[in-house]
């Protein structure tokens, strides 16, 4: 089966059928008006052949929908350039050896979840010895000395630590956020790094389920790692990027 990259649509069970599943809630009392509104809403989104698989009464004048529709909209994937952190995948042993040879010291990494976010799940899975998905965390590498500051760290505390341990890399994680507060917090940290004159000396990386590389670059970070990232991705990026940085 050949996908026409110039003309890509979602796939249900036939190439080009444009099948999509949606679920959402409307703030309308359960009933015929809610049903028709949901249908019109889907049409306005560009869907045809709309099937309301279920609509359910949530109470308080809210109605929940699960809907299938088909779309004629297509995207030219052949013209898209994707930005992602660039690195060659090397093994842990290779990286350890490379760092030993090229740096002759450990790379110092400070990690923290900044601002109000209390979740360390992402940070821990990248940094902790144990790692994530059978992929060991940065603490397991000889190449790194890791300081995991945990959750709800203020940018000021973070920077204090960076100075104290003479860090090479900052790793910030943002997991659960509301009303885009994570953008504000990430901007605050970056502003402070510049104000303190630390930015140029550091590799600053952000991770989290709502983070993309593109967003990270926009905010002035060196890289953004989103969902599905394993620790070795981050490890490879750090080592290879620092090598580039120091060879200049």
């Amino acid at each position: 089966m050949m996908t026409d990259l110039k003309n890509v649509r979602p796939y249900g069970d036939q190439l080009g059928d444009g099948a999509v599943q949606l679920s959402f809630t409307l703030p309308i009392e359960y009933g015929p008006l809610a049903r028709e509104t949901a249908k019109r809403f889907c049409e306005a989104l560009g869907f045809q052949d709309i099937t309301i698989a279920t609509m359910e009464d949530l109470g308080e004048n809210f109605t929940f929908f699960v809907i299938y529709g088909k779309t004629a909209v297509s995207v030219d994937a052949s013209s898209i350039k994707v930005v992602a952190p660039k690195f060659r995948k090397m093994t842990r042993e290779q990286l350890d050896e490379l760092v030993q040879r090229e740096f002759n010291r450990k790379i110092v990494v400070v990690g923290a979840t900044i601002g109000t976010d209390a979740h360390t799940v992402g940070l821990d899975s990248i940094l902790n010895m144990k790692g994530f998905h059978g992929d060991y965390g940065l603490e397991r590498y000889h190449a790194f000395k890791v300081y995991n500051m945990g959750a709800q760290v203020s940018p000021v505390e973070l920077i204090k630590k960076v100075r104290e341990v003479d860090a090479d890399v900052i790793l910030v994680s943002q997991v659960v956020t509301q009303r885009n507060v994570h953008i504000k917090q990430l901007t605050e940290l970056m502003d402070l790094l510049y104000a303190e004159g630390l930015r140029e000396d550091l590799l600053v990386i952000v991770g989290g389920p709502r983070i993309t590389h593109e967003l990270a670059l926009e905010l002035g970070y060196d890289a953004g790692f989103g969902a599905g990232t394993v620790p070795s991705d981050v490890a490879n990026f750090i080592v290879q990027e620092l090598l580039k940085k120091y060879s200049h």
């Binding site: 679920s23 959402f24 809630t25 359910e56 949530l58 809210f62 929940f64 997991v175 659960v176 956020t177 509301q178 389920p209």
Partner: peptide, 12 residues
Amino acid sequence: EAIHTPYLHDRY
């Protein structure tokens, strides 16, 4: 849970 604070229908 892993994405955002609960939407109304997530709770439902």
